[in-house]
Design a protein around this nucleic acid. Structure first.
Lengths: 152, 152
DNA sequence: CTTAATAGTTAAGATCACTGAATTATATAG
DNA sequence: CTATATAATTCAGTGATCTTAACTATTAAG
């Protein structure tokens, strides 16, 4: 990677941090969800097929901790928890409609600054941004699963 | 904003969330810092001129909470806290070298996926990404302060 | 069939962050 | 000068998350 690009990424990282952290934490507080809860919610909104232990390693906590958090979230009606027919030791976790809504709001809240920013660009500039981001999104999809590609 | 761009941003948001949340929380746990502590650390690494109450409103908590958190961070040698000569009710908060280092590691950890992703792009593609991100960074700087521009 | 491994839950205890209220110190307004 | 407002700190109490350990249920292996 060239040095100028290195700097660009660093700047971009900082910008991203600066603008999304506060929004995220304020949103969590407003809605009365904890950071761990909201994090799990958002993770589930992306990876629907996920078990308890998987969430634990993802966030670096024991599965006991995840189990307790999920119990609350099930009671709050955010998550649907059921047995996996294939292996009944596993639990299949799916967001309810409410859960999906909250997760989405959280994501939007965290990146609102980006929408705002893009809105003040010219059309040409917006096109450039679109191309670049789409490039990254497609590559990321390739990394996740070599067969899938972004369906636009 | 055009509908395709709208979708691009949504996809980008999701991708960002998916890849950075877990990294961030695992990093915090590894290093034995809490999420609030690490968030404050990163905020201070961006906005060095900041007082207690400012941090409180930024993260949506009381200044009592911030004061207590900062007390710990001062004792850990991450933050330097001194009186503001202009208004001695205020405290001026500055990161120590250790604090800066940790904050930077946290930022890098959270966005490592992006560096990895960009590294598998061709040079042409990297250039496109560089242009687009630089565009956004410059515009953001304009929003923050109409006179400043990214010094490359 | 028995044993071992895996997934999840539960309980007890520790830690941590947060709030509200009281307190101190400084700055501003009348 | 006095009264009010602002900034930060301290303290007691509360609630939430986390961990370890014990436990149940299911699956896989010998």
């Amino acid at each position: 990677m060239s040095p100028p690009l290195e700097k660009t990424i660093n700047d971009w990282m900082s910008l991203n941090m600066r603008n999304s952290l506060g929004n995220f934490m304020r949103f969590a507080k407003e809605k009365n969800y904890s950071i761990p809860q909201l994090s799990i919610l958002i993770h589930l909104s992306q990876y629907e097929e996920c078990n308890i232990s998987g969430l634990g390693t993802e966030f670096g906590v024991t599965n006991a901790a995840v189990s307790q958090l999920l119990e609350k979230m099930v009671q709050q009606g955010l998550v649907h928890r059921s047995e996996d027919p294939q292996d009944r030791r596993n639990k299949v976790l799916l967001l309810t409609e409410d859960g999906k809504r909250i997760a989405n709001e959280g994501i939007i809240e965290r990146h609102k600054w980006l929408s705002d920013l893009i809105n003040i660009l010219t059309e040409e500039e917006q096109d450039q941004v679109d191309i670049a981001l789409r490039l990254l999104i497609d590559k990321a999809a390739l990394l996740d699963d070599p067969k899938s590609q972004s369906e636009s």
